[in-house]
């Protein structure tokens, strides 16, 4: 605004007078502007008439009473605002309290979901059917061994490797890696085989060494060399042939 630029001798334009007319009528104007208006108004008689009309009408109007009438209802606002705020704080407090109580359980549940599955290999065996479904739906992992394993999902390749390694360490016979994997995929009683072999080895290890017992065990159908012994003993024609040879030798000697 051009307060300081107000030229005391210049006459305000019509637009300027119109812009300040209402403020001039209600006394809401600075002194320099007031003087400028007083000088300019005689040049615009129609605006002077308007000014008179405004003053006459608004003189009858009690601004303060009008405002007070409107404000009657607003008087109790501060009380209600405080009440509402207190109610909201109470509600928020209750929500925070319940959140504080439930939060540890929530955190535990999330951690349990994330941390427990890698150690939950044993459950895998008891839920073979589920594994079979996952095998059926999973892409061919044999072609992508480096693929990352999703947490919480058992990696079949890793699992059969683990089992086969265990078998190799225990020196169990007749079980190749491929056979183990096939047994797993086909859902055969691979678990039972492992347990059975392991129990027989344990029996062998824990028993006091005894020739007879060892002989019994070695010659039994459960023994690790059962195949060799049976190869040596079982073919009946071999004994027959040997006996015949002995008989022939005896016969020859007798003839000689």
């Amino acid at each position: 605004m051009s307060k300081s630029k107000e030229n005391p001798t210049s006459i305000l334009s019509r637009e300027e007078v119109e812009g300040s007319l209402a403020d001039f009528a209600f006394g809401q104007i600075e002194e320099t502007r007031h003087l400028a208006m007083e000088r300019a108004l005689p040049h615009y008689p129609d605006l002077q008439e308007e000014l008179e009309q405004i003053r006459t009408v608004f003189a009858r109007f009690d601004k303060m009473e009008f405002k007070a009438d409107l404000s009657l209802r607003a008087r109790s606002l501060s009380v209600h605002v405080h009440e509402n705020l207190a109610r909201q704080r109470e509600r928020n407090g209750m929500r925070n309290h319940s959140l504080k109580r439930l939060l540890p359980f929530g955190v535990f549940a999330i951690l349990a979901t994330l941390v427990l599955p890698p150690f939950d290999i044993l459950n895998y065996f008891s839920d073979k059917a589920a594994t079979q479904v996952s095998v059926a739906t999973a892409p061919d992992r044999s072609s992508d061994r480096s693929a990352q394993t999703t947490p919480g999902i058992i990696d079949l390749d890793g699992l059969d490797e683990l089992i086969v390694t265990t078998l190799a360490q225990d020196d169990l016979p007749g079980m190749s890696r491929e056979l183990a994997a096939t047994a797993l995929v086909n859902g055969t009683s691979f678990q039972n085989d492992i347990l059975e072999n392991e129990s027989s080895l344990t029996l062998f290890d824990d028993t006091e060494f005894d020739d007879n017992l060892f002989g019994d065990f070695a010659s039994s159908a459960f023994g690790p060399n059962s195949g060799l012994i049976s190869d040596f003993i079982l073919p009946g024609d071999f004994q027959e042939r040997e006996l015949q040879q002995l008989f022939e030798e005896l016969d020859g000697n007798a003839t000689l």
């Binding site: 119109e18 812009g19 007319l21 209402a22 009309q53 405004i54 006459t56 009408v57």
Partner: peptide
């Protein structure tokens, strides 16, 4: 300022 002038003028005219 223009809006204020118009508002005051209309009120005065209509009241009158």
């Amino acid at each position: 300022k223009a809006n204020y002038y118009q508002a005051v003028k209309k009120i005065a005219q209509r009241m009158q």
